[in-house]
Simulated scan of single mutants.
Amino acid sequence: MLLLTTVVFWLAGICDGVQRLTCPYDLMDEGLPRVWCKETSPQCCTGFSFSRQSQSLDAGSLKVTQGVDSFTVDVLNLTQGEGMYWCGVLSSNNTIIKLAEEYFYSSSYVWDILRWILMPLLPMVSIFSYCYLNRKHQNKKEEGQLMNIAMTSDLAQNNRQNEDSAEEITELE
């Protein structure tokens, strides 16, 4: 049950409308302008550059978080539509040095599909898990009672055998 809940919350986190791309760079490229763009061909992309201090881009559609040797772009809204996106740095000769790339989907598309599959399953799985665990607990309880009855029966039988043995010993004397 815990595993299922964890998976559902993890999927909900993926599908909450935020997709992320982490862009690791060499320390020598730290001062270069950053780039975010959508691939138009394997060698080209269209987008924009931004500074290291930028935290919000494209009218709030992108959130940038700076790390020690990387920056992360959180995509809140795909204004250019779904497709392959790059992050990188802009070299001194205006060439994009691609750091990472990933295909981004329209988040509503992914979430629309997953929520219709996962959300009805969650209550059903919860109910079945509760019933299963409750029944399992009940079975253990019944097994314990049966063991007590069996042990009591064995003790009574042993007592009878001991009494019979004692009578036989008495008769032999």
Score class of each variant (00 low, 15 high):
Asp74Ile: 05
Glu171Gln: 14
Glu39Arg: 06
Ser56Thr: 10
Tyr132Ala: 07
Val64Leu: 01
Leu57Trp: 01
Arg135Trp: 12
Leu27Cys: 12
Leu11Met: 09
Gln19Ile: 03
Gln55Leu: 10
Glu82Lys: 07
Ala156Glu: 10
Leu57Pro: 00
Val8Pro: 03
Ile117Asn: 00
Val18His: 07
His137Cys: 13
Lys98Cys: 05
Thr79Ala: 11
Val64Ser: 00
Leu133Ala: 11
Ser108Cys: 10
Leu172His: 08
Gly31His: 13
Ser91Gln: 04
Glu171Asn: 15
Phe48His: 11
Asp29Ala: 06
Glu173Trp: 05
Gly88Phe: 02
Cys15His: 06
Met119Gln: 11
Gln161Cys: 12
Trp36Ala: 02
Gly67Val: 02
Val73Ile: 02
Gly31Tyr: 10
Gln145Asp: 12
Cys45Lys: 01
Met28Ser: 15
Thr65Glu: 08
Leu4Ser: 15
Cys23Asp: 00
Ser91Lys: 04
Leu118Ser: 05
Gln161Arg: 12
Asp16Glu: 04
Asp154Cys: 12
Leu4Lys: 08
Asn77Trp: 06
Gln157Gly: 09
Leu172Phe: 08
Phe128Ser: 11
Gly60Ala: 01
Asn93Leu: 05
Phe71Ala: 04
Arg52Met: 14
Tyr85Asp: 01
Ile149Tyr: 05
Pro33Gln: 04
Leu99Ile: 01
Glu30Thr: 11
Asn162Cys: 13
Cys37Ser: 03
Leu2Tyr: 14
Ala166Cys: 12
Arg115Gly: 05
Ser92Cys: 10
Met151Ser: 15
Leu122Lys: 09
Tyr85Cys: 00
Phe104Thr: 01
Asn158Ile: 14
Glu82Cys: 07
Thr46Gly: 14
Ser61His: 04
Asn159Val: 05
Tyr25Asp: 00
Tyr130Val: 10
Glu82Met: 08
Leu155Thr: 12
Thr170Cys: 14
Tyr85Glu: 02
Ile113Asn: 09
Gly83Gln: 02
Ser165Trp: 11
Ile96Lys: 06
Gly47Ala: 03
Ser70Leu: 05
Ile149Thr: 09
Ile169Ser: 14
Met1Ala: 15
Cys131Trp: 07
Arg160Leu: 13
Ala100His: 01
Gln19Arg: 03
Ser165Asp: 14
Val89Gln: 00
Gly31Leu: 13
Tyr130Pro: 09
Thr170Ala: 15
Tyr105Leu: 06
Arg52Trp: 09
Gln161Phe: 14
Met1His: 13
Trp116Ala: 03
Ser41Asn: 03
Gly144Ser: 02
Leu21Asn: 00
Asp58Gly: 00
Gly83Ile: 00
Met84Asp: 06
Leu99Gln: 04
Gln53Val: 08
Tyr105Val: 05
Ser49Phe: 12
Phe104Met: 04
Leu3Pro: 14
Ala12Phe: 07
Leu122Gly: 13
Ser41Arg: 07
Cys87Ile: 00
Leu11Thr: 11
